[in-house]
Structures are given as structure tokens and as C-alpha cells.
Simulated scan of single mutants.
Amino acid sequence: MRNISDIIEKYLKSILHESPEGAVEIQRNDLADKFSCVPSQINYVISTRFTVEKGYLVESKRGGGGYIRIRRIEFPGPTSLHTHLQQTIGDEIGQTMAEGLIYQLEEARFISKREAGLMRAAVAREVLMVKLPYRDQIRAQIMKAMLISLLA
């Protein structure tokens, strides 16, 4: 059985996908009640699975009428995608940012699950066993080369 974090993530993604505005507002306590968990579990899911690197903006307002708003960052269309990727990757890119970009490309269906897995394996720090900043520079070059090939 999947853990509660996976279930909460799937639920939030489904309501976000159904939202015409591409954003949802939730009450942390209401969501915690819905899933019979503590509110800090909701915070954990949002802070680890709805990050900027993964293509989400999260805003929150504390207090009695407080809310958490999650908004999906839209990828540019295919025509401006190359420019966006060149700017995002730049001359160097860290592993977290690279994995986030790969995740966004997979979610937007620009690359397949298999291609995403291959890309993650190719840019992993365990594979690129050189010291920083060279590792991030090599990772950027690998990412650019793979994306040019895949998105051509």
C-alpha cells in the first residue's frame, strides 16, 4: 500500500489538474481531517513535492482564514522551449535543479518516463564523479545535449 504522503500528493495533483485556473487553495486543517493525519504531514507533502524545481509555486497565509495556494508553473510552448531550457540550464546546473527540470518535462509530456529515467541516471552525482564546479558544468552540457536530441 502507498504511504499517506503519496496519497495526499496524488489528491492535490488531481484537483490541481481539474482547476481551470491552474491553482488551488486549500485549508491545511481541512485536508488533514480528510486524510486523518496531522497538519504537519500536509506541510511535509507540500514542501517536498510541490517545489519550484518541480514546477509549482506555493503561497500561504497563516491565521484563522489562512490558506495554502498551489499554482502550477506552465512550461512554454514548443517554439520557445529551447530558449527556456538554455536559460534555465545555463553553463552549470545542480542535481536538484536538473532533476526538477526533468520532472517538469516528464509531467508536461515533452519526454517519456523512460527518457526521464535515463536522463536522471546520466546526470546523477554518483555517475559524475568529479569535483564541483566541474560536475555542474558537465551536467549542464549533458542535459543540453540530451534535450537537443530528444526535443529536435
Rank of each mutant, 00 (worst) to 15 (best):
I93V: 09
T51W: 01
H17F: 09
A122G: 02
F35W: 09
E92C: 09
A145Q: 11
Q95P: 08
D33F: 06
Q41K: 14
A152M: 06
G55V: 03
H84C: 06
S47V: 05
D91N: 14
I8E: 05
E59K: 13
I89D: 00
E99N: 13
E126K: 13
G65P: 06
K10G: 10
I26P: 04
A116S: 12
I4P: 07
Q87Y: 07
G94I: 02
I138T: 03
Y44L: 13
I8H: 07
G64N: 10
I142P: 04
L118R: 11
R139N: 06
M97K: 15
R62T: 12
R28S: 04
I42A: 07
V52L: 13
M1G: 14
I7C: 00
R49G: 04
G77L: 06
N29Q: 12
A124T: 05
V123N: 02
P76W: 02
L81D: 06
S80C: 00
D136C: 05
E107W: 01
D136K: 10
P20G: 06
K34V: 06
H82T: 10
P39E: 10
I73S: 01
R109D: 11
T51E: 00
R49Q: 10
F50M: 02
V38F: 09
I89H: 01
I102K: 07
T83A: 10
K34D: 04
P20W: 02
V123E: 08
K13V: 03
L57P: 00
T83S: 10
R135Q: 12
L128S: 01
T48N: 12
D6N: 13
F50N: 05
I73N: 00
I111R: 01
Q141D: 11
G90M: 03
A122H: 04
E59W: 11
R72Q: 10
R125C: 00
I46P: 08
I46Q: 04
V38M: 11
M119T: 01
M146W: 08
A23D: 03
M119P: 02
L132A: 13
E18R: 14
I8P: 09
Y56H: 02
A116D: 05
I102Q: 06
L132M: 11
F35A: 09
L101R: 05
E74V: 03
R49Y: 08
P133N: 08
H84E: 09
E53M: 03
V24L: 07
I70D: 04
E53G: 15
K113N: 11
A152L: 09
E107D: 14
R2K: 15
S40E: 11
R125I: 07
L150I: 09
M146G: 01
C37F: 03
I68V: 13
V127M: 07
I4S: 07
D91Q: 15
I46G: 02
S112T: 15
A124K: 10
